[in-house]
Design a protein around this nucleic acid. Structure first.
Length: 159
DNA sequence: GCCAACGTTGGC
DNA sequence: GCCAACGTTGGC
């Protein structure tokens, strides 16, 4: 079982929104590295939800992968902001879909929410994607990184 | 295939 | 709202 971290803007879709709408399609990702990570997600993997672009950016809660990544329907919808005609071309050509979305099911809030500033201060996380890769919205956590976050949050990070 | 211009993300 | 750190686009 792997651990992942995903970012979401709470004004658009918060942890509470996920709780109300669980399970939810995690759509709208339009970055190739993030897309590759979405493809790697396995059923039962635990996903840390991080609020971004808000007053206190922080890891706030947990979800679990409840359906493997499927073609992101918002990418084939011309009415949608995330529309990408190449998605339609890929599907028509029987190629793997360019953009995908897994389904995530709400788990719980973290016992202690963890502001990004606190995470960035930890030497154990200095080499993590979170610290090293600006703007990446989907990333894996190593076991040791997950263990560090678990201990900071007073949470097992288990489903 | 290089790279300058441009657009976006997201912490601060 | 600023701006650094990116990723993408398109002319050449």
């Amino acid at each position: 079982m792997r651990h992942w971290l995903v970012k979401t803007e709470p004004d658009a879709f918060s942890l509470d929104d996920l709780r109300r709408e669980s399970p939810a399609l995690w759509d709208g990702v339009r970055n190739y590295q993030a897309r590759n990570f979405l493809r790697e997600m396995q059923l039962g993997d635990v996903v840390l939800i991080q609020h971004s672009s808000c007053k206190v950016p922080a890891v706030v809660g947990l979800a679990v992968v409840s359906e493997l990544a499927l073609p992101d329907p918002t990418a084939s919808d011309p009415e949608h902001k995330g529309f990408d005609p190449r998605q339609v071309a890929d599907i028509d050509a029987d190629k793997p879909p360019r953009w995908v979305a897994p389904r995530l099911s709400y788990l719980r809030p973290l016992r202690t929410t963890l502001p990004i500033a606190r995470l960035k201060a930890r030497p154990e996380l200095a080499d993590s994607h979170l610290v090293r890769r600006a703007r990446l919205s989907v990333m894996p956590l190593s076991e040791s990184e997950a263990a560090c976050i678990a201990s900071m949050a007073g949470d097992t990070l288990l489903p």
